[in-house]
Write a protein that binds this DNA or RNA. Structure first.
Lengths: 143, 143
DNA sequence: ATAGTCCTTGAAGGGAGGTTGAGGTTCAGA
DNA sequence: TCTGAACCTCAACCTCCCTTCAAGGACTAT
């Protein structure tokens, strides 16, 4: 059996069958039908679904994911160039996400390090009570 | 003017006023009211909002963000221990997100490197046409 | 004091990403 | 051949995260 039923695909991918149908309705994955109109998926679809779930978890929308997957030819056998193009585009997108996370982390580290948000150490390093009482300006940690 | 109107806060944070009210209704931020019942925010709220937006962009829910922000005492002047606790919790959460992104990136790199998903190089390294035709198993790149 | 802008609440609407259920069909094993 | 599990479609519904309105009140500059 080299084709998967929707139930098997869903189970192996760790998602509900309704989600699989939903992804298919959005064109993120494709299937062929049996004579009795049931969906059958290629093994490679499992990889696509894993890709979709992981991408979602890092904050990417299905539309964005679909656009990326859409650059892979559905007419089978993507070329090395196809993959390189997808990979390059995503690498920068993923680096961007990592940068965002680091910004978030820096925000926390900044708070701990400098004691902004009225930590005692901040009041110490800035003896004027007024500033400590209302917190430092947003510039240090702004968007 | 050391307090912000909702309009100013929204503008400086780069979000809509409706979003600010929404965050407040969820307890993510707080305000005081003027005699005429208008909201006024502390400068530090700007930082909270920036934090919220960034955290959202990396795939965290408002609930999760609110839980983290909730560990900071609203009764002002969080201690160093408060911040350290929040930071520790988030650091692992953020490291987890980075790990997810790297997993995604590895998936792409893997595809390029080994040519799974029926790249020609994959067919070459695995001369049996059958495997190349249906793609390799999901194990290589599974969840 | 008055115009113009900003603010208030509450309810309804909307898009993303699904889930659930009804009513019916197909598949696989005994 | 029959039966039970799995599948089908379609529509309604759900949560999250807001946005948009309506009807009215507050602030500020002149």
């Amino acid at each position: 059996m080299n084709q998967l039923t929707i139930g098997h695909l869903a189970e192996r991918a760790g998602v509900a069958t309704s989600a699989i149908r939903f992804y298919e309705s959005k064109g993120l994955i494709t299937s062929v039908r049996t004579v009795g109109n049931q969906r059958r998926y290629e093994q490679s679809t499992l990889r696509r679904v894993a890709f979709i779930r992981t991408a979602q978890q890092v904050g990417l929308s299905l539309e964005e994911i679909g656009a990326a997957l859409g650059t892979l030819p559905d007419g089978r056998t993507p070329t090395r160039a196809d993959w390189q193009r997808l990979s390059r585009a995503w690498r920068s997108r993923l680096d961007e996400q990592i940068a965002r996370i680091e910004a978030l982390r820096d925000r926390l580290d900044g708070c701990i390090g400098c004691g902004c948000l009225s930590l005692k150490t901040c009041a110490l390093s800035n003896p004027g009570d007024a500033v400590a009482a209302q917190g430092s300006g947003p510039v240090l940690l702004g968007p």
